[in-house]
């Protein structure tokens, strides 16, 4: 047995497919993106590269076609909204459904459904709902006695950010709810029962027993929410066009996509990609650290 399972060639061959995929598509590109971001390229032709150091990064913040500061600010805002509005909503749903209410499976299944719909389609539906000539949002605005913004919610510089972020935040409420619900359900029933016998209210049980118990899951949700916000692309890409108004709602991935495929500036595009990778790792580490501190 030992001889069989200790054979170096066998070990190598079993790891080979995964390693080839993983290194060639995930690991090598990190370094390649970082490398390309230090050069000025003509289109995507590597042989024309000209070393410019950190010039691309400087350009991003100063004098690039798009103001990356706006995009970064939007991404951070989205991350903030995600952590402080989306996740609490998910948590409230998970707590309400996880403690044995009638119809909990139905509510759970319905609330999770948006996660399965392609972001492209949600983006298109939302654009239609916001359409200034026939969108349902017009009725809602009229009902609330809010003046319809000129050009529609998605093309007005004052409302575009809110209009773009709403479906992004909405779509994944159900996802985080599901993760947290699974956590709530894994709390041993004896814990709850003991607390209830001691006279604890449901709110107290949630606060002092369930929340500490599901902290690892909340950590995962926070990491996903923040890194997901930094990376967000699909939904926003579908909803916005190419004019100046839309640039107010750019996030880094959109700037990256535009640099790459509208302007063929691969150095600048790679600089945005590299920045995103670094930011995602930094935030994952910070969040891990914050939660570890509290656990002690």
């Amino acid at each position: 047995m030992k001889k069989l399972y200790g054979n170096k060639l066998t070990i190598f061959l079993f790891l080979l497919p995964a390693l080839v995929l993983f290194i060639s598509i995930l690991i090598a590109p990190i370094f390649m993106s970082g490398y390309v971001s230090l050069f000025k390229l003509q289109g995507m032709n590597l042989s024309t590269r000209e070393f410019v150091g950190f010039d691309n990064y400087r350009k991003l913040f100063n004098g690039g076609t798009y103001d990356i500061k706006v995009a970064l600010k939007n991404a951070f805002l989205l991350a903030g909204l995600s952590v402080f509005i989306q996740l609490p909503l998910s948590l409230a749903l998970a707590l309400a459904l996880g403690s044995g209410r009638k119809g909990e499976r139905w509510f759970l299944s319905i609330n999770f459904m948006p996660v399965l719909i392609s972001a492209v389609i949600i983006g298109m539906l939302w654009s239609k709902l916001c359409n200034p000539s026939y969108g349902v949002m017009n009725y809602i605005l009229d009902l609330l006695h809010i003046e319809r913004p000129a050009g529609g919610l998605l093309a007005n510089k004052n409302t575009i950010l809110g209009a773009v972020f709403t479906p992004v935040l909405w779509q994944y409420v159900g996802y985080h709810m599901l993760l947290m619900y699974a956590g709530v359900k894994s709390v041993p029933p004896e814990y709850r029962e003991a607390a209830m016998i001691d006279g604890a209210s449901e709110a107290q049980v949630n606060r002092h027993i369930v929340l500490p118990f599901i902290k690892p899951i909340i950590k995962i949700s926070v990491i996903f929410a923040v890194t997901g916000s930094l990376k967000s692309y699909d939904l926003i890409a579908v909803m916005i066009g190419d004019t100046g108004v839309y640039e107010k709602a750019y996030v880094p991935s959109i700037s990256m996509q535009r640099y790459l495929f509208k302007f063929n500036q691969f150095g600048l595009g790679s600089a945005v990609a590299t920045m995103l990778i670094v930011l995602c790792f930094i935030f994952a580490l910070i969040i891990g650290f914050v939660f570890r501190e509290k656990e002690d």
Binding site: I25, P29, S33, V36, K231, M256, A273, L276, I277, F281
Partner: peptide, 12 residues
């Protein structure tokens, strides 16, 4: 945790 963005330029 690696975002898909890393792969776009190199793969392209």
């Amino acid at each position: 945790t690696i975002p898909v963005h890393v792969a776009i330029v190199p793969l392209f």
